[in-house]
Design a protein around this nucleic acid. Structure first.
Lengths: 206, 206
DNA sequence: TAGATTGTTAATCGATTAACAATC
DNA sequence: TAGATTGTTAATCGATTAACAATC
């Protein structure tokens, strides 16, 4: 993999879609794919696809296209999906509990090993194979277990303080499910469920 | 509100953030805001903010800025958040159940009035104030209740067929929680939780 | 070899930013 | 009025698309 100087945000945001499509093709037994094929499947321009891949290196072969399994592996490596990550969920409401019990992410290498809340009535409650822990112990837990990702599923108004606490505890990235933009020193990815629903409402009017 | 010829995707994707910020400001009792203020709060360029607002009409006042409550209301109207929408959830797994029990969306006018599954063991189970219904009755339910939004929280491999069924039943838009890109005649908004997590993994490497 | 498809450069298009006259 | 800030036009920047030589 070529070490690229700077890859634009737009390219990065397309990588997961490439990854998912290549994974699907590989499962279907497709061994070979061209930028033209992918452009049809993903509704993108073939030039753009080739440009995107060439940000990281030349994975194709003239006159042939790309080898599905190899390209999938390369993109997985670029995204950092070839290793495991420990994560904790802060906020044991419905969404927090749903994430713990959804095993899809574990299959992809994201291991949710703790769920926290401040509400006394929730502490100790079983969630999947875990039990809700008191948020008092969050910092120690993150440090002792080498947790790299903090998932925020608290109420909106607790989002910023939770983000601060997670960042101070040594988490390297934050996955934010609240509709609140948090500011921290570590990378934050917002799921933006609200925004997505608002945009759907907008489209229903058009 | 000016009827704009065409508003770019980039502008539309920023509208929810404006809306959320203005809502927050209004709640905090702020009555007046300039594009400069907003640019700091949202980490955007002030020119861009003014350009964005002027896609829909001139809501500001020279020398003063924007009236928070008025601007908030206008953007709510643009997004279509001034009316109610009926929605159904298809897939009564953890995420589907979490959505039904999260009342945040209801507060914003999105009323989830049905939850469906094909799994016999789930049918009849209580979820919030609802009971899981058999997916056999989905089409009739959508028609009889004027459901406009279909929410897909099924397994990935059922996403496309569910989308087809929803679209045929007369739903006007689809909110897709699966990591599968679905193709239909109605607008689809993808929550893309997976993609968001992959991008976080990418950032942890940088 | 001929055909296909890449990698890459150049052209186009659109979005962001800057600038400033209009005006509250 | 003077100061502030918009609305809008023009300049810049970056991303997308087209084109084509390289080559498998």
């Amino acid at each position: 993999m070529k070490q690229p100087t700077h890859v634009s945000e737009a390219v990065i945001r397309r990588l997961p879609r490439y990854y998912r499509k290549l994974d699907e093709l590989e499962r279907r037994g497709v061994t070979r794919v061209s930028s033209g094929d992918l452009s049809q499947e993903l509704n993108l321009n073939p030039s753009q696809i080739r440009q995107d891949f060439n940000c990281f290196g030349g994975y194709g072969q003239q006159g042939y296209g790309y080898q599905v399994s190899m390209l999938r592996r390369e993109i997985a490596a670029i995204l950092g999906l070839t290793r495991k990550y420990r994560a904790v969920v802060v906020g044991a409401g419905h969404i927090g509990q749903a994430l713990v019990q959804y095993y899809g992410f574990e299959r992809e290498g994201f291991d949710i090993c703790g769920i926290f809340d401040i509400k006394p009535s929730l502490i100790g409650a079983p969630v999947g194979s875990l039990r809700v822990l008191s948020a008092d112990g969050l910092t120690d837990f993150v440090r002792e277990n080498g947790v790299e990702i903090g998932i925020i599923t608290t109420q909106k108004d607790a989002a910023q303080s939770t983000a601060n606490k997670l960042a101070e505890s040594g988490v390297r990235g934050i996955w934010n499910f609240t509709p609140m933009d948090v500011m921290t020193g570590v990378p934050v990815e917002n799921v933006s469920m609200n925004d997505s629903l608002y945009i759907l409402a907008y489209r229903l009017q058009q």
